[in-house]
Simulated assay, not measured.
Amino acid sequence: MSPSSLNSIDFDSTRFDAAIVDLDGTTIDTLGDFAVALNRMLEDLGLATLPRERIELMIGKGSEHLILSALQYVAAADGADAPAALVRAQAQFERGWERYQHHYLAINGQHAAVYPGVVEGLRALRDRGLKLACLTNKPTAFAKPLLAQKGLDGFFERVFGGDAFERKKPDPLPLLKTCEALGTQPARTLMIGDSSNDARAARAAGCPVLLVTYGYNHGEPVRAVDADGFVDSLAELAAPRR
């Protein structure tokens, strides 16, 4: 791998025993699913829908955060100040969460696509003997069917959703628990993600971190994030070392 793409990570498989891979924005482009489910939820609540560009900025911290952020944004757009928008969003959350789950489960994967190079990258990691786990803030009930539908489930020994542990990324707990489940040490477990959430969790857990440049990073430049390396495609992990 060239230093310009992987920076300080020299992808030598002997450095790692496992890799923890994010889902939304890293392996699968799920923005379409988020937009359809969220806007159907808003319609059920009699609220204005949001453009995909706005929804993309809210992705990454779990479905609960996405829903609350959307409800707050709509309330603010209606003229509520920040405290009032939060109160209104919290009052609408329970109904919104129920409707969101209903719609997401109905369309899960229909408006999503595996990113180019993901299959090649996962296959290269597996063929080099690394244990693989998928760790996402998406609820497990959404994540597992999506991976199966897209033919990626066979790559992962374990799949953990945002409800698997007491806390979600960027807290390090999910990474530490995933390392424990894989029987690996954090220092020898590579985190592969697309955002500052993944990088912050990895840094706190003691895992090296590699970020893709094409995912969802809350509207911020991903290359400004503190990470050990960046790739434009996971297929770069399958390229011969130079």
Rank of each mutant, 00 (worst) to 15 (best):
P172C: 09
A133C: 09
L130V: 06
F142H: 11
A113L: 12
K138E: 01
L146W: 04
A164G: 06
R123K: 14
R158P: 01
V118F: 13
L152M: 09
P174W: 09
K168N: 04
N137Y: 00
A148D: 14
T140V: 14
L122W: 09
L176C: 07
F156K: 13
E120A: 14
Q110Y: 00
L147V: 06
L122E: 11
L132R: 06
N137C: 03
K131A: 12
A143G: 03
E120Q: 15
R167P: 00
P116F: 15
A148N: 14
G129Y: 10
G117H: 10
K150I: 08
P174K: 11
L125H: 01
H111S: 07
E157W: 10
I107G: 02
V118E: 12
F160T: 06
C134W: 04
G117V: 14
P139H: 03
A124C: 06
L125W: 00
L147M: 05
D153H: 13
L132W: 01
R128V: 01
V118A: 13
N108Q: 08
K168V: 04
L147S: 04
A113W: 10
Q149T: 14
F155L: 11
P145E: 07
F165V: 03
A141W: 06
A143E: 05
P145T: 12
L146R: 06
L175I: 07
A164S: 15
K177M: 13
D153A: 15
F160N: 08
D153P: 07
L125R: 02
G154A: 11
R167I: 01
G154L: 10
F156P: 04
P139T: 07
R123F: 03
V159E: 02
K150W: 05
L147N: 03
H111W: 06
L146P: 00
G117K: 10
P116H: 13
R167K: 10
N108Y: 06
V119F: 12
K131N: 04
D171Q: 05
